[in-house]
Design a protein around this nucleic acid. Sequence first.
DNA 1: ATAGGGTTAG
Length: 751
Amino acid sequence: MGYHIVVSCSRFTNPVLRNNFHIVTTPLPRHPCSFLYSTISFGSPPPLGAYHSHLLKNGSLQNLNLANYLLSLYVKSSNMNHAHKLFYEIPHKNTQTWTILISGFARAGSSEMVFNLFREMQAKGALPNQYTLSSVFKCCSAENNLQMGKGIHAWVLRNGVDGDVVLENSILDLYLKCKAFEYAESFFELMIEKDIVSWNIMTGSYLRVGDVEKSLDMFRKFPYKDVVSWNTIIDGFMQCGYERLALEQLYRMVEYGTEFSAITFSIALILASSLSLVEVGRQLHGRVLKFGLNSDGFIRSSLVEMYGKCGRMDKASTILKDVPLNFLRKENFGVTCKEPKAGMVSWSSMVSGYVWNGKYEDGMKIFRSMVRELVVVDIRTVVTIISACANAGILEFGKQIHAYIQKIGLRIDAYVGSSLIDMYSKSGSLDDAWMIFRRINEPNVVLWTSMISGCALHGQGRNAISLFEGMLHQGIIPNEVSFVAVLNACSHVGLIEEGCRYFKMMKDIYHINPEVEHYTSMVNLYGRSGHLFEAKNFIFENGISHLTPVWRSFLSSCRLHKNIEMGKSVSEMLLQSAPSDPDAYILLSNMCSSNHRWDEAAKVRGLMHQRGVKKQPGQSWIQLKDQIHTFIVGDRSHPQDKEIYSHLDSLIGRLKEIGYSLDVKLVMQDVEEEQREVLISHHSEKLALVFGIINTSQRTPIRIMKNLRICTDCHNFIKYASQLLERDIIVRDTHRFHHFKQGNCSCGDYW
DNA sequence: ATAGGGTTAG
């Protein structure tokens, strides 16, 4: 019974014969379709399609075994459209027929289809088996539909479906994905047969909610560990922000002797890039090549991202070359095919890589060709790129992406919205951030926190506070980041009372343990407003004297308020605990020189030199049309450099006439007064500013980004410039925005 | 047939 179909294989290698093959049917001696195994790898449509129409024509679909087998082949080769069509051509379906199709759609992530088919199946009176059910449960958890899952679970219990560990695992996963932890835990306890998958599900779920303790506890209890166990724990640690722990586990995995899977490589590469371990990344790349895994899309995208983050765009682009853009068109995004998605990740990583490395034009160029060629740009891609724009502060690119989102009609949800708000506020356009915020009406904590951070960044302390209160009023529970935002807002404008209140609220009402950021913000709040003693008390009262960022903030307040004695006593501490932190040396040295203690300043610099600590070079950038122009101190590399310097000199002269004087005390170098004046007058932000003045029409606002905190002299300089030139000048430094307008700065000289 | 690979705020 049945048929053995003989097909000559040569046609697959000979393109001429490709569409000209013969199907020979003979009575079945062994497995009905054994030959078909060999055809799958050639891609389904020609052979399966021919086979399909053949069966249809001679009525062989009556043979359920054969029909089901063909159906499963369609599913295996991700051809869900054909599978669906065939399904309705099969006259007498059994449970297996339904199951094959349902599991196929489940794997493809088409939950709606699965639910419909499942209902249809029940209506037709076909009894689902454990495999059907696990697929349906998978969709329930994918859709986060606890109610439906519970209903089906009840049905399973009522009907006494024979379940095995697989079915129970899928139920376990459902409850965990829907965060019904108590239920899941007792279910897990009651499971008679637990396999490695059950343990992995538990570990992964705890990590997803950040419960590292419980997940580690589970992990240790495993009877044995497979590659997925390791992947789960490594990726989970990374997601929770414990990169070091993740790395540690990766080494353990190697020790344990578990072989890497493709996913391990992918995870490990991302880990290497987030820890900036270029060397590890390169070694992994070597292993990838050795194992021949470089054709895996996910691995390729991690490689692109890794090289991009490490500034090796050349390497990244070599790897990207293997992913043709036209391959990523909509029609290739078949229901189950993950490969185009992975390819898309590679391309979007390339865009963010360029943006990260300040190569905005290249990033834009690639994004444009993506838009032109590929059609499908999903939410994640967009969010990744927007967030890269936010960090680079390149408003124009961000705006274009925003326009693109609107054009393709992508719904701006909390995810996209938060990243847009962040992008606009970090690029200096707080109004646009507000506009986005007002349009999204979602009680999402990240969304609100982004807006609060935006206000804080622009020194709008009062607005930040009323937003925070509004958030509480809406019933949104603030998290640790929300408190960082509101505390920063308070410290930027010196709202001591409010800051203290929120700090207390965080601990007492929301039971959030303060982290370094919160402490630093508080010390900043006290210190910047001149309450140095309170700041110091706060440090000792809270037992945080071992945290270097706290002392760095304190030291910078000492400098601001010219309390050199106090500053010196803490800097000793700082230099000991963080001997490789350039900021500490620079702060101390600047403090000494601004009090004319040149010897001491020289000593600090000597120490810095001796220990091989390098100062991060100051860099400012400004965007003009489609280009980013970057400047460093004393930069002569710009094509317009002559014009810039002569204009700068004359500007300094004109500003001096209206009261500006160079504050040369801040110069690190031990040089003559006149030379010092030259150095400081060529700070990168001054160069960027003059470049902006020359190249834009009068009264156009100028936006400048800087990778360090703006110095007193430049701050002063720009204030006068905004008055003389009647221009709004907006500067973003590492801490906040300064809006200069008619001789004043929005920070009120308080930064 | 069940678990694992990229997304927002400091």
